[in-house]
């Protein structure tokens, strides 16, 4: 095993461990945080089926954003859809046999990386151009956008311009997944892409990217509006 392979195998496992433990610890924290008050944002659903419908609209279509800022919705929605498709397409490197449905999706060439990069650049620009968002933007907002743009750019490079041998990539990734390390492909662009992704995984649980799990725990969206029908008691408020 070469030094580079050893380095990246260790690096990858550290990154995955930090990501998994960090992400799950955050989820545990969100899930166990008491919500002492009923605060669903009205008009709110009055039963749990309605809540599911509301969450689907919120997670699937960013409804609140749609009704508050159409321009940013377009950029943000495009970015998220492109990200979803990109992740789905990458799954073929992580599973032994590519499921037929996955192969089918993968077979469409829709230049999703360029859409992803474009949407990110648009969102970056929006932060700078609109006075209010410029004032609201923190360093982490810019850093994350640049980070994702770099990942997209190196991904585009490996896919369309400086190709790498993807059979070797799959062998390497499957080696990681099966805990039997394989040699890492030596192409610099692939290594940069991979490094950036691992760094992102490490940063993920500490960043605002946790909204990916956190959105499901928003009390204003996931509560049923039945304050008058059912008495809302927080467990810790019950007298022993």
């Amino acid at each position: 095993m070469s030094g580079l392979t050893l380095l990246y195998t260790l690096f990858a496992y550290v990154a995955i461990a930090v990501f998994l433990v960090g992400f799950l610890a955050r989820i545990w924290k969100y899930a166990t945080t008491p919500s002492p008050l009923k605060i669903p944002l009205t008009p709110a659903p009055v039963n749990s089926v309605g809540v599911v419908y509301r969450m689907v609209q919120e997670v699937g279509f960013f409804k609140s954003l749609f009704y508050s800022n159409r321009i940013i919705w377009i950029g943000g929605y495009l970015m998220h859809i492109a990200l979803l498709i990109t992740i789905v397409k990458h799954l073929r490197f992580f599973f032994k046999t590519t499921p037929a449905a996955l192969a089918w999706i993968t077979s469409f060439e829709i230049y999703v990386g360029f859409i992803f990069f474009g949407a990110l650049a648009f969102l970056f620009l929006m932060r700078l151009v609109i006075d209010r968002t410029y004032y609201l933007s923190l360093m982490q907002d810019y850093v994350l956008l640049i980070f994702l743009m770099l990942i997209a750019a190196t991904g585009i490079l490996t896919k369309y311009y400086v190709r790498t041998d993807i059979i070797k990539v799959k062998q390497f990734v499957m080696g990681l997944v099966q805990f039997r390390p394989e040699a890492i492909p030596g192409d610099p662009i692939f290594i940069i892409h991979f490094t950036l992704v691992l760094l992102l995984l490490i940063y993920f649980p500490f960043s605002k990217l946790m909204h990916s799990g956190g959105i499901f725990f928003s009390p204003t969206r996931n509560q049923v509006d039945d304050a008058r029908e059912v008495r809302h008691v927080t467990p810790w408020a019950v007298k022993g």
């Binding site: 990501f19 998994l20 992400f23 799950l24 989820i27 545990w28 969100y30 899930a31 799954l91 992580f94 599973f95 032994k96 046999t97 062998q171 499957m174 080696g175 997944v177 099966q178 039997r180 394989e182 799990g213 499901f216 725990f217």
Partner: peptide, 25 residues
């Protein structure tokens, strides 16, 4: 909630544990 996220995040590891060896293939 914790378990749902755990399963989603570790899916590649779980699936390949079930599927078994691929490297020799």
């Amino acid at each position: 909630a914790f378990l749902v996220f755990l399963v989603i995040l570790t899916l590649p590891f779980l699936v390949s544990a079930v599927n078994g060896d691929i490297l020799s293939q």
